[in-house]
């Protein structure tokens, strides 16, 4: 099965160690959230997953896709395999397109695809990201949320098997976050999506598999409960809103963090269970 595999990766910028013995696999169709605070190495790991690094820099360990290191992939092959969106969307614009439509068509044009296919992919990505109304606008004059959707649309037009998004929600207002999150949830299941996040709630709303990155190491890996309620996660990122609300309301005081409910349904179940037990 197709996968991006990171094994035993250690990397430093100068003398600053950024990643340490990271091993991880992103399988086809995965919905993976990688959580970590500022300076935890998220962006660097995102760049390695997408093949932007090592970029000739010294490192230990390997990152492969389908068993081959990224360095062996041609630009065109890699573009069709993986795409990366970043935290500051304006930096992820190509700087070559005068309109939103041109920006989305930029990748497929570079691949020299037949015109009919470029047109079809562009229109599909426009619709998917609800950018039709903005198709003729100048990308640099869009709002942050619109730009983020554009970056995702431009990535989708290349039909990558892996979509890596580095804190796509961080600089957005609540409405734009909602927009982008629902866009991510609507993506077809044949694409793997890796969401790098600082917010446990956003991760919880989207992902099925979770990783906690702490000071460049993987501190936890597994289900939402394994990771989001892990001691290190609670310490660095805080509790997700449902368990936090439970704590603030004084509910389940007898439970450890790792046993708190993660969703409303779980909370209801626990309350009902407790009531039944009392009866």
């Amino acid at each position: 099965m197709a996968a991006i595999a990171v094994s035993d990766l250690t990397f430093a910028f100068g003398d600053k160690r950024v990643l340490e013995n990271v091993s991880l696999e992103v399988r086809a169709g995965a919905r993976l959230a990688i959580l970590g605070g500022n300076g935890s190495g998220k962006t660097t790991l995102a760049h390695f997953l997408a093949g932007w690094l090592p970029d000739g820099r010294p490192h230990q360990g390997t990152v492969t896709c389908d068993g081959r290191p990224w360095a062996e992939w041609s630009l065109a092959e890699r573009a069709c395999a993986v795409q990366l969106g970043g935290q500051v969307p304006v930096r992820h614009l190509s700087g070559r397109a005068f309109t939103v439509r041109e920006e989305i068509a930029f990748g497929p044009e570079n691949l020299n695809l037949p015109l009919a296919e470029i047109r079809e992919r562009t229109e599909r990505a426009l619709a998917q990201c609800r950018l039709e109304q903005l198709a003729e606008r100048d990308p640099f004059t869009l709002s942050g949320g619109e730009q983020q959707r554009l970056v995702i649309a431009a990535a989708l037009a290349l039909e990558p098997r892996f979509l890596i998004l580095d804190e796509p929600l961080t600089n957005l207002d609540p409405e734009a976050r909602e927009h982008v999150l629902s866009l991510l949830l609507s993506l077809p299941r044949d694409r793997a999506v890796v969401l790098f996040e600082t917010s446990p709630d956003a991760a919880l709303a989207f992902a099925e598999e979770f990783v906690l990155l702490d000071s460049g190491r993987i501190a936890a890996h597994g289900s939402a409960r394994d990771v989001l309620l892990h001691g290190d996660a609670v310490r660095t990122l805080g509790l997700p809103s449902i368990p936090r609300a439970c704590r603030e309301l004084g509910l389940f005081g007898e439970l450890a963090d790792s046993e708190l409910p993660l969703s409303l349904d779980e909370a209801k179940g626990l309350i009902r269970g407790a009531a039944d037990a009392r009866r």
């Binding site: 997408a50 630009l75 930096r91 190509s94 020299n112 562009t122």
Partner: peptide, 21 residues
């Protein structure tokens, strides 16, 4: 720096010519 990553990722100059929509 970020933009050169973006350009490579979107296959800019992967081929000597590019299609024009």
């Amino acid at each position: 720096q970020e933009r050169s990553g973006v350009l490579n990722a979107r296959a800019f100059r992967a081929f000597p010519r590019r299609a024009v929509l």
